[in-house]
Design a protein around this nucleic acid. Sequence first.
DNA 1: GTCTATACTGTGATAGAC
DNA 2: GTCTATCACAGTATAGAC
Lengths: 198, 198
Amino acid sequence: MSALPNRDRQAERREATRREIVEAAWEIARRDGLGAVTLREVAAMIGMRSPSLYSHFESKNAIYDAMFGDAWTGYLAEATEAAKTLPDDPRAALEAIAEHFFDFSVADLARYQLMNQRSIPGFVPSEGAYAPSVETMALLHRTMRTIGITDEADIDLFLAITGGLVDCQLANDHGGDRWRRLLPRAIEMYADNVWRQS
Amino acid sequence: MSALPNRDRQAERREATRREIVEAAWEIARRDGLGAVTLREVAAMIGMRSPSLYSHFESKNAIYDAMFGDAWTGYLAEATEAAKTLPDDPRAALEAIAEHFFDFSVADLARYQLMNQRSIPGFVPSEGAYAPSVETMALLHRTMRTIGITDEADIDLFLAITGGLVDCQLANDHGGDRWRRLLPRAIEMYADNVWRQS
DNA sequence: GTCTATACTGTGATAGAC
DNA sequence: GTCTATCACAGTATAGAC
């Protein structure tokens, strides 16, 4: 359908190869940890030599960068979908948001470390890869507004509580639910505080 | 005074060299980040070649291990001291504990990453280095008991809230006080929840 | 444009001389 | 204990085959 069908096919092929590389990197990261990803193994998994990766990514960190963008884009998509079916009750809505973030985070340690911790020495996400993260924050602010929370400090506190529970869960009880069980209570506590005047 | 003065002097000298190595590693970690520590630079800082470090530490991770033990020993010492002069008021005591932990954490990012995050790929603290961390938890439990908090879930929630604030501060507003300012309110919120029946 | 072969630098780690 | 020399492996640069 395009005026330049050849270009499109090339671009598609190129994008497909980039995806292959990133998917291979995710596989290693999930299996052996984020720091265990090596260009040689990524290349071997898709039948290449490591220098060939440089035809598609300018550095190893550029691969991490694509993974970072991937992860936040995935979360943004899920959160956008979830925002459509939030409970009407403000407290139930808060809990739904927190539980969704918690379960998403805990489902993939490597992904969480890449998204929310500075786990790779020297890696700083690019502006482009950071965009879906910023967009996710914007979505959170809009959603919180519909719940009746507009004060930025209130949102900051919500983020700290939710993130703190996730961190404790992953660091001290990986695979368990010791902190997951505290989530409803934590949200109740938070809601009591935010709406303590009314 | 010893029966084997020579042995003592050797042991002292050996321990002094170990300290030199660890201090050099801390200096690099604070300046360029935890992951930027290299054996060659550590060795150069104390006038050695890198292979010589292996006479004192069996691996690079063993140096990280000593640093990990260092950091928690330092915090345990401060916390033990601080526990002696806690306010009588339970809420004020809680806030003092949380503020002390927060300020200690924020004062040194590299130290915090080593103590509380899995920032070094493949590094797992040894049992010995972990001991002061366990001891710190025991101290926290004892202190919380004097405040009137005995339920383990209550303590877990306290840890999550405090740690969450620290993480947000370091990740999103390093050097600022955006989450530090929320700490008194967060502790108030927590106390309201813990003592909501009374 | 895509991939390979080769090679350079820096890393943690080891072997053996002194 | 500390050195020199060296290793295996990492990320990466370059030149050239197709």
